[in-house]
Amino acid sequence: MAAIEIVLPAVEAEDRVVETAAGRFRVAGVRIPEKRVTADPELLRDLVKVARAAAAKAHVPYSHFHVGAAVIMADDPEGRIITGANIENASYGATVCGERNALHAAAAKGFRKIRFLALSTADSLGGPLQERSPCGICRQVMREFIDRDESGGAALILIDTGDANFTADIVDIDRLLPYGFRL
């Protein structure tokens, strides 16, 4: 199948000022520019399938919440799919999410720029986006591996829907973490 152009629409919300007896407060707005990405839809579909298969390999004896991820790094000339699954531990701080496992495996191979990242939360498929979205730590780790110069296209994050009518919800890091920390 031929590549298609995916347009992530601009998002604009103005700052608001709240006047109170205790002073003025600013409610921060957000400005995210429109982004256009060319991608092969079959590749994106297959990446979501690989993420769902990776979720089946999760080690989740405590939460029973299976998460799988599949990533293609922009700086990998072979365009390999690297997977990860969440691995829990009785010492909860030692638990690692599927998204971070995939990204750490990619980084260990020397890659630093996400092109496409798919994730599947197998136990909440069909639920609302907030029940299928990556956690805050994973969002911040994703931001670390998103190229600041997205002139070649934004890194797409595909969140498995589990819905027969939709393969995935598509977002980018600015929509997932608009005020993420950067040095």
Rank of each mutant, 00 (worst) to 15 (best):
A85Y: 04
G84F: 02
A21Y: 03
K109F: 08
R16D: 13
G98K: 03
D160G: 05
V27K: 09
P41N: 03
I32D: 06
R143H: 11
C138N: 04
V11W: 02
A108W: 00
R148Y: 10
I159A: 06
V27C: 10
I87P: 00
K35N: 10
L176T: 04
Q140W: 02
V171D: 07
A154E: 15
Y92C: 01
L117F: 08
P61Q: 08
A70G: 05
V67N: 12
T20W: 03
G79A: 06
E12N: 11
K49E: 10
T38G: 07
C97F: 09
G79D: 07
T121P: 04
L119N: 07
V96M: 13
C135G: 15
A164C: 00
R100T: 14
C97R: 07
T20F: 02
R148A: 15
I82C: 04
L103D: 08
D163M: 04
A94Y: 09
R112Y: 05
R132K: 08
L183N: 12
A107C: 06
P134Q: 10
T38Y: 02
L47K: 00
A105L: 10
P61L: 11
D75W: 03
E150T: 11
T121C: 15
G93I: 01
I32P: 04
F181Q: 13
E19V: 13
P77A: 12
D40A: 05
G126A: 08
C135D: 13
I170M: 06
R100W: 00
G110S: 12
R31C: 10
R45W: 00
L103Q: 05
D123P: 08
Y179I: 05
S151Q: 13
E34N: 07
A39R: 02
R16Q: 15
G126V: 07
I173N: 13
I146H: 05
R112A: 15
V50R: 00
F111V: 13
A69C: 09
A28Y: 01
F116H: 11
I170V: 15
C97V: 05
I173Q: 09
E5F: 02
R45K: 05
R139M: 14
V67G: 07
F111C: 14
Y92D: 08
G136Q: 12
R148Q: 15
A154I: 06
G23D: 08
R132E: 13
L43T: 03
H104K: 11
H59Q: 12
L43W: 00
K57P: 01
R115I: 10
